[in-house]
Design a protein around this nucleic acid. Structure first.
Length: 489
RNA sequence: GGCGGUAUCGUCCAGGGGUUAGGACACGUGGUUCUCAACCACGGAACCGGGGUUCGAAUCCCCGUACCGCUACCA
């Protein structure tokens, strides 16, 4: 199996899904997964983009066995480095009379296409240069006339190929114009390069987007002309946005790196992408990639386009956040906590702080980037505001005064000591339920609603006890907060 | 326009000649907790239309419709 992106931009989630399905097949069947870079479009291809795609693939955990960085038995793995191969095979095709030089200019071609369209005919290449004798072609080339090479599509044939997701697909050659296989600048065209590469790299299964299905008959013809056996194809339906248009920027995030930047976990994105067009069966949905690979069956992939559902991705992401080891989650969340101003740097002490505060966020938040706003109250406590709000509560000042007194000098509160303190306050004041907890919440967090106090109070005190460490701004303890609010109200 | 592909709840995915057409997300209601969230329970929600085949069609066939893709010296 192979994944063959062109390095002309960020890795789109649709392409990531294609990569994933290839990976699932390869890993599930003990196959080899090749990464091949299709950089024949020299105008748009960049090394930065290639590096970005490799990084995104790594982040997703879609590892490959052969590729430009790893090497392998069929190098090179960048098309720009395989130019002699394409040239050699195109010469063979010309020699065999299965390809020919084409001298038509872009303007000429454009005119013909417009005319064909206007008259309602299929806008395919007329095949004019196919008539040229080898002698004529050679003469014109010798004269320095620029020429592309076209593949001679055999007339009046029906090309049928099996497609693992759709069954047999047929096209008649009468609708296929002779495709350019080598551009006049000498570079190979996509349809030719894939065929040569997939054949030489001994790719057995090509899983790719549905947008390639119309290319497949030309490619099958080229396999035949070159004396190669075509691989087995499987064309995946496209990924759409909520408006049923192909997923694009205006729908929000579309690239893997954007999803990463928005705080999605790689295993969540992978799990979601796998569910888009496929299901492991038995109603199971949340499965690790290895388990999905074990169960993967291309044959059972959906035929129809799928709408990308951010809500479901969020649900899956929440699941994996709850599932993660706390230390890993802290490490993952650090960048957002730093940029969100919770801590000033990613230090060991800062990680302790984030670790103390994280339990309030997981389960309550869909993404890592939402963590800072969920826990910010710990760090941005406004004494005056808290006091004002407590004063507005019927029993507020009385409850907070009692609370301040009960916890004074006790040191950092834990869940247990807080519960005990709350019980004591209830005994002292006779206030219970919401009337008891709400003033405490408001005094200590400054929030009308938020995390459970069982979680919030120990977190605040833990952070307060860490407050002079590197990379951490000092925050007042619950006792201090209660005391201040009490004195102000 | 031509060619190709696709069609089950709002969305994703099951199922498939006779089923109360199933699950998940989302949504609604209720429960629980000091509130939001989470969690639990319950609920509403679908076989594109028309013909045909058949005792029986959501399922098989044909047509239509809609949507998507391709129709490049981009990949």
């Amino acid at each position: 199996m192979r994944f063959a992106p062109s390095p002309t931009g960020l890795l789109h989630v649709g392409n990531a899904r294609t990569a994933l399905f290839n990976w699932l097949l390869a890993r599930g069947q003990g196959g080899t997964f090749i990464l091949r870079v299709e950089d024949t479009d020299t105008e748009r291809s960049t090394r930065e983009s290639e590096a970005g795609i490799r990084e995104d693939l790594h982040w997703l955990g879609l590892t490959w066995d052969e590729g430009p960085d790893l090497g392998g038995p069929c190098p090179p793995y960048r098309q720009s480095e395989r130019l002699e191969l394409y040239a050699s095979y195109s010469r063979d095709l010309i020699a065999a009379g299965q390809a020919y030089y084409c001298f038509c200019s872009a303007e000429q071609l454009e005119q013909e296409r417009a005319a064909a369209l206007a008259s309602g005919a299929p806008p395919k290449y007329s095949g004019r240069c196919r008539q040229l004798t080898p002698a004529e072609s050679d003469a014109r080339r010798a004269a320095g006339e620029p020429a592309a090479i076209r593949f001679a599509v055999p007339p009046d044939r029906t090309v049928t190929f099996p497609d693992l997701v759709r069954g047999d697909v047929s096209f008649h050659t009468s609708v296929i114009g002779d495709p350019v296989i080598v551009r006049s600048d000498g570079g190979p065209a996509y349809n030719f390069a894939v065929v040569v590469d997939d054949a030489l790299m001994r790719v057995t299964h090509v899983i790719r987007g549905e947008d390639h299905i119309s290319n497949t008959p030309r490619q099958v013809l080229m396999y035949e002309a070159l004396g190669f056996v075509p691989p087995i194809f499987a064309h995946l339906s496209l990924v759409l946005g909520p408006d049923h248009a192909p997923l694009s920027k205006r729908h929000g995030a579309t690239s893997v790196s954007e999803f990463r930047a928005r705080g999605y976990l790689p295993e969540a994105l992978v799990n979601y992408l796998a569910l888009l067009g496929w299901s492991p069966g038995e109603g199971e949905e949340l499965l690790p990639a290895g388990e999905m690979a074990r169960r993967f069956d291309v044959t059972r992939v959906s035929h129809s386009a799928a709408v990308f559902d951010t809500g479901k991705l969020a649900w899956i992401n929440r699941h994996y956040m709850k599932q993660s080891e706390p230390a890993r989650l802290v490490a993952l969340a650090m960048p957002w906590c730093v940029s969100g101003g919770l801590v000033t740097a990613d230090t060991a002490a800062a990680r302790d702080v984030v670790g103390a505060v994280l339990p309030m966020a997981i389960g309550a938040v869909d993404r890592l980037d939402e963590i800072p706003s969920r826990v910010a109250f710990v760090f941005r406590w406004d004494a005056a505001e808290a006091a004002r709000r407590v004063a507005a509560e019927p029993d507020g000042p009385r409850v907070v005064a009692a609370f301040a007194e009960v916890i004074a000098g006790r040191g950092p509160l834990t869940r247990e000591t807080f519960r005990a303190a709350a019980t004591r306050v209830r005994e002292l004041t006779g206030v219970k339920g919401r009337a008891l907890f709400h003033p405490i919440r408001v005094a200590v967090t400054g929030l009308e609603s938020g995390p459970e106090l069982d979680l919030a109070i120990p977190a605040i005190d833990r952070v307060a006890s860490l407050c002079h460490a590197d990379g951490v701004s000092p925050v007042p303890s619950c006792a201090t907060r209660a005391q201040i609010v009490n004195s102000k109200s």
